[in-house]
Simulated assay, not measured.
Amino acid sequence: MSLYKTCFKACFAIAVCMFVVGCGSMPKTVRNLGKSDVDFVTDVHARQLKLQMIELTRKLYVRNPIQLHKNPAATIDSRIKQIFGSENSIELPPLIFDELNGVTGIDAILLSFDETFQGDRVFAAIVGLSEMLRRSYNHQQEFFILDSLDEQALYNSARNIEIFVWRLYHRRDQYGNPLIYSNETNDNGGDISFDRLFTKMVMIQDMMALIVADKTNRSITKVAHGVAQFVFLPIP
């Protein structure tokens, strides 16, 4: 292929990308002209992560109905819409709420495990986790050629999910009860479906971190620490 044709294709792809980013209502077939193979993969991972988070929200509210009842007007579906918008929308609602004192991201996660917090712990936890994960995707749900992600942010978000899980399973009130109930064990094994859900989420983020690192030819700085040192990592 001649240099002229190569430059023309590159310029055309960039132009299409810039156009469709500003026109989210364009038909999907047209928007796809501005995507690389990695963009399609990223779209799938981001969409799957959103679906996993919606499932997590439902499961936590089923296990913690008392948290939902702290807001008499709330239902599971209304909470999901507040946090995620419509299931198929690529538009993400802002995650700043008065009932959480305006905190979000990691601060909202920490609030959900604060023994003095009297509000909806599930809502605080999901808002915080969702915002933290969104930051690792630059608050996007669809990606094009000019978009770029940070492999370190994706890696750190995977570790933060693991830290969140540890806190979820271990943080208890003064009476020894979990601050937020999750897995339920009994003589027959019980329900450990939360483990499977969190494992899927960690795998999604770790895989995306590897894909982006391979694409950009950059390395990931890995962290090693014990459970006693679990501190949430920053999302660059």
Rank of each mutant, 00 (worst) to 15 (best):
S2N: 14
K9G: 02
K9C: 10
P27Q: 06
T29Y: 05
N32E: 13
G34S: 02
K35N: 04
S36D: 14
S36W: 14
D37A: 10
F40C: 04
V41R: 09
V44P: 00
H45I: 15
A46F: 12
A46T: 09
R47Q: 09
R47L: 03
R47F: 10
Q48C: 03
K50A: 07
K50C: 07
Q52V: 00
I54K: 10
R58Q: 14
K59T: 05
P65N: 12
I66E: 08
L68D: 03
H69D: 13
A73F: 04
A73I: 03
I76R: 08
I76P: 07
S78T: 05
I80C: 08
Q82W: 03
F84R: 06
S86K: 13
E87G: 05
P94I: 07
L95A: 01
L100W: 09
N101V: 07
N101W: 14
N101F: 12
G105H: 14
I106M: 06
I106V: 15
A108S: 15
F113R: 09
D114W: 11
D114Q: 14
E115L: 12
E115G: 01
T116A: 13
T116D: 12
Q118I: 04
Q118V: 04
D120H: 04
R121V: 02
V122P: 06
L129T: 11
S130M: 03
L133R: 09
R135S: 15
Q141C: 09
E142G: 11
F143R: 08
F144K: 03
S148R: 15
Q152K: 03
S157F: 06
S157D: 05
A158M: 00
A158Y: 02
I161P: 01
E162H: 02
E162F: 01
W166F: 14
W166L: 08
H170I: 04
R172G: 00
Q174L: 12
G176I: 05
G176W: 08
N177E: 10
P178E: 05
L179A: 10
I180E: 07
I180L: 09
Y181F: 09
E184P: 02
G190D: 04
D191C: 02
D195W: 00
L197W: 07
L197R: 03
F198P: 05
T199M: 05
T199V: 11
M208R: 15
M208A: 04
A209Q: 01
I211F: 01
V212W: 11
V212F: 05
K215E: 11
I220L: 02
I220D: 02
I220H: 01
V223D: 03
H225N: 11
G226A: 15
V227M: 12
V227G: 00
V231G: 05
P234G: 05
I235A: 13
P236V: 07
